[in-house]
Computed example of a mutant assay.
Amino acid sequence: MSHSHHHPAPAEYGKAFALGVALNLIYVAVEAGYGFAIGSLALLSDAGHNLSDVVGLLLAWGGHTLASVAPSPRRTYGWRGASVLAALGNALLLLAAIGAIAWEAVHRLAEPAEIVGLPVVVVASIGVVINTATALLFWSGRQHDLNVRGAFLHMAADAGVSVGVVLAGLGIYATGWTWIDPATSLVIAAVIFFSTWSLLLASVNLAIQGVPEGIDPTEVHDYLASLDGVAAVHDLHIWAMSTSETALTAHLVRPTLTDEDEFLHRTADALHDRFGIEHTTLQIERGTGSCHLNDPGRV
């Protein structure tokens, strides 16, 4: 049996999270203040969503920090799974925000309120700059870490939402149609929902130890089965240790046990390079027994 793991230097996003939280707290205070002053649901709903994103950034920051805690005898993987819980918590938090925004928007459609359009444009324009700048802090890690990708998607969606609020303010300023404000809020809710859905599906999948997106288990199975001397592959399991690290275990039936150590190290390196699997545990069998419990790779 062989266990191999690769430890790439973890990206450090502590400063990015701290700066993102600070910028968004300042903006939430400004946006909510103007929203209450002029009675704009578009500003208040966007401020509420931005506040939930501050909580989301804090969750992602906490998950990112806990994932770096060293393993212990009681927690042999450390706290890596905290990043998965943070991504899932972010998705659920955004779904709650969507419901609140949509509920209030429908109420305002029935009972429109007088709104001054120009201040909405000014405040939301600031939001475009802040949300875009915050999203860019997580640009480099969005493809390799679901937790960081969640932070990026939230802030990128917020930048788009702020653009929508600007357009609503211009529309109200030009026409005086106050229904544009709650209608924009419904569009905001829809944008947040669609940007959150993929994050929710991916984080739930990781939480139940499903194969991470981007890895085809059948392709992994076929690759292992094609290796020199391998007669069969069974008990193949692929799961996420965190939002950025993947593990694999498998039994390889190899009747002729030659160059075993070299074979195991070469296979582990290939799994890392081809599929991005960092932690590999392989058990070699002669194939004389009947230890063939299951074969998830064929499912």
Rank of each mutant, 00 (worst) to 15 (best):
V121N: 05
G62N: 01
S203K: 09
L94P: 05
A100G: 07
V165S: 00
S185V: 13
G171Q: 05
I215C: 04
S195Y: 03
F194L: 07
E31D: 05
L109F: 15
M155Y: 10
Q209M: 11
V116E: 04
V120N: 02
L43H: 09
A105R: 06
Q143G: 10
A67K: 03
E104Q: 15
A16H: 15
A151S: 12
S83V: 13
A47M: 08
L153M: 15
S72C: 06
R266E: 10
D295Y: 10
R149A: 10
D259I: 10
G89R: 02
L186V: 14
V253E: 00
R108Y: 14
A11F: 14
I38Q: 00
F36Y: 15
V21W: 07
V55A: 13
A18S: 08
A231D: 07
V21K: 01
A9S: 12
E114A: 11
V30M: 14
N147G: 05
A82I: 06
D145E: 02
P119S: 01
T243M: 07
A202C: 02
D222L: 10
L146H: 06
E111M: 02
A47V: 14
G141Y: 07
A91C: 04
L93K: 07
V28N: 00
A202H: 07
S195D: 01
I277G: 00
S2I: 14
I188E: 00
T175Y: 09
I208C: 05
A157K: 04
E245A: 12
V148Q: 03
Q209W: 15
N131S: 08
H144K: 12
G20L: 08
G117N: 02
A189P: 06
N90F: 08
H272V: 08
A231I: 13
E260G: 01
A168W: 13
T288L: 10
I172F: 02
H272M: 08
V191I: 13
T184Y: 11
L118P: 11
A156R: 14
T246Q: 02
A100F: 15
D269G: 12
E260V: 15
E104F: 15
E262N: 08
S45C: 11
G20S: 06
F193A: 03
